[in-house]
Amino acid sequence: MDKKKQLELSRIANDIRIDVIEGVYNAGCGHPGGSLSMADVMAYLYFEELRIDPKNPKWEDRDRFVLSKGHTAPVLYAALAERGFFPKEDLKTLRKTTSYLQGHPDMKGTPGVDMTTGSLGLGFSAACGMALSGKINNKDYRVYTVLGDGESEEGQVWEAAMFAAHYKLDNLVAVLDWNGLQIDGPIAEVMNPTPHDEKFRAFGWHVISICAHDLEAIEAAFAEAKTVKGKPTVIIAKSVKGKGVSYMENACEWHGQAPKEDLYKVAIEDLEKIAESLK
C-alpha cells in the first residue's frame, strides 16, 4: 500500500470515528466502543475492498456486507454515509423515531444495508446463506461479515462456522473484532471464547491474524483471503475497543453508552488531533 493511499484511508477511518461519536452523542445512547474498534476495517472495506455502487445499492452482483455484531450500527452507517449511500447529515438522526437509521441495522429501511441484524449470531448465518446462494447461482460476488469476539459466545456462531466450512464457502470472509471486552467485562472473565484461531482452524477455516488498525495488514489479509480455495477465511483482528478516543480506549463501560456534552467535546478534540496529524 503506498503512503498516499494509506494516508487517505486513515483520514476516512478517522472521519468514520468522528461520525460515530456525532451519531451516538446526538442519539444520547448507542454503542461507540465496538464501532471505533472496527473503523479502520470498515474504511478499507467500503473504500477499497467491496465491489459496490452507492447509486445502486441493490445491484444484484454486488459484494455483500453483513454486520453480524449489529449493535455497532453507527460504524456501518458512518461508512455507508462516507461512501455516499445517503447524506452524512442524516447520521445525526440515529435512533430517532422518524429516522431510517434504526438502533440496529434494518435492510428494509437503510440504503446499503444488506442484512437486518442485531440479534447476535444470526447475521453470520445469513452471510453463509448469501455465500451459498452465490455458489448455487454461479455468481462471483463475495460476502463479508464482521463478528464480535463476545458474539462468538453464541452457539449459532459455531453452527454457522461448521456450515460455511462444510459447503466450502471460499467466497465468504469473516472479520472477528477481537477487542477483548463485552458488556459485563473482559471476555476472558465473562465467558472465555478464546483461542479463536485454533477454534476456527479446527472448524475447517483458513485463519489470518492481524492488527485491526494496521491498514497494510488489513489489505494483505483481504488479498490473501481471495487466494484461498475450498474453505472460508476468518481474519482475527486484534483491536482496541474505543480506538481513537482517549477515555474510551480499552474501557468496558463505553461498550454501550453515549458521552455527555463534556466528554463528547473531549472525544471530538481527540479525533481532531488525529485528523491534524494526518494532514
Binding site: M115, A126, G129, S133, F163
Partner: peptide, 24 residues
C-alpha cells in the same frame, strides 16, 4: 438444490434468510 444443515435449526433458518436476500 438440496442442502442439509445438520442438527442446527437456528443456523438453518438464518441461512435461509441470507439465501432469500439474494432473490433465491
Amino acid at each position: 438444490r438440496f442442502f442439509d444443515c445438520g442438527i442446527a435449526e437456528g443456523n438453518m433458518v438464518s441461512v435461509a434468510a441470507g439465501i432469500a436476500t439474494t432473490g433465491q
